[in-house]
Each structure stands twice: as C-alpha cells, then as structure tokens.
C-alpha cells in the first residue's frame, strides 16, 4: 500500500479548486473547501489502497464537502430579535459578481445539479478521472457513473443552452426517446 506523498499534492491545487467551485458554486467557498480538504488530508499520514492520488483527493474533497454541509444543516440559526425586527433587506441571492464570468456561470450551473450527477461530472469531466477511478472514489459502480455522467452532461448542456434551442431539443428528445407504456 503506497503512502500519499504530501509534497506532491500541491500540484493538484488548481484542478481541485475548479472541482470545489463546481461543488460549492462560489469561488470563495471553493477556496475554503480546498484548504479544509488539504488540512484534513495532510493532518496525518495517508495511504493509497491502489488509488491514484487525484482520485484520493476527489474522495476527500467530496467527504469534506458533505460533512460541512451536514454540519451546517444541524447548526441552529442564530437569532437576534433586534435585527429581525428591523426587517433588513438581504440581497445576497441577487448579486454574485463571479457569475458574470463565463467560467463562473458554467461552474454555478454544475453546482445546481443533483449531488450524484454533480459528483460524477466533477470527477470525470473536471478532475479527469477515468470512469473506474471515479466509481471507486465515489463508492459506486462504473455503469452507474456512466449513467450519471450522461444525465449530468445532458442537464448541463440544456441549462446552458439558449431557451429556444433548449425547448427545441426537449421536443426532439420527447419525440424520439420516450416510449409508450
């Protein structure tokens, strides 16, 4: 069983950052997620059980992302009556400057996919893992990865397409890919 070489991990920072952005939908959150992932991985010696380094990092990134989200869901909301009473307007959802960039829009679209589809897409199309590596990192079968990848790409392409062409494609798909029952 090979030991993970801590000195070689930094070479994956850029790819992991793109993957994290696609998971979180925000560049700032992506930075924090990547840093937290590295902090966890480097916190103690790690061993690769036949895995590629990048596949191991994908697994760690996904686990860190999910545990952070679970923790956020468990944490009770902080309430300050005096502030609530003022009915402060919160325009957070309306302004995300990074989305003005094409890459930001693309990754934000990926972040809106369902978890299973998103993880498959991130593993294969962003990190560049093989189907087999992605299946192992995500704890599923290769055939499942293939199906999820197909659906993820389909949804992403339709999300990014102009409304008219998306509608037209939907019509084509309905007429050609649906079956009578």
């Amino acid at each position: 069983m090979a030991r993970l070489d801590p000195d070689s991990l930094a070479a994956h920072t850029d790819r992991l950052y793109r993957a994290a952005w696609a998971l979180c939908g925000s560049p700032l959150d992506a930075e924090d997620l990547v840093q937290e992932t590295f902090a966890r991985v480097l916190g103690r010696p790690r061993f690769l059980s036949g895995q590629d380094e990048l596949a191991y990092l994908m697994q760690a990134l996904r686990n860190t992302f999910l545990s952070g989200r679970r923790a956020a869901a468990r944490r009770p909301a902080v309430v300050a009556a005096r502030v609530e009473e003022l009915s402060l307007s919160d325009g957070r959802a309306s302004t995300q400057p990074e989305e003005a960039l094409a890459a930001g829009e693309l990754l934000a679209a990926v972040a809106q996919l369902d978890d299973d589809f998103r993880f498959a897409l991130v593993a294969v199309d962003i990190l560049g893992l093989s189907y087999a590596e992605a299946a192992r990192a995500l704890g599923t079968r290769e055939a499942t990865i293939t199906t999820r990848l197909y659906r993820a790409r389909q949804r992403l392409a339709r999300q990014l397409a102009p409304p008219q062409s998306a509608a037209s494609r939907e019509g084509t798909a309905r007429s050609g890919r649906l079956i009578d029952e």
Binding site: D14, P27, L106, L121, I126, R153, A161
Partner: peptide, 18 residues
C-alpha cells in the same frame, strides 16, 4: 452533440487557484 457540448465547455475551463 449535447454530450460533447458539456464535455468541451468543462475541458476549456482554465481557472487557476488564487
């Protein structure tokens, strides 16, 4: 074409970490 559109868009990502 739809599958390739997604693959191409993601492959073209050239974001560098800060």
């Amino acid at each position: 074409a739809e599958q390739r559109q997604a693959v191409t868009a993601l492959a073209a990502l050239d974001l560098q970490a800060p």
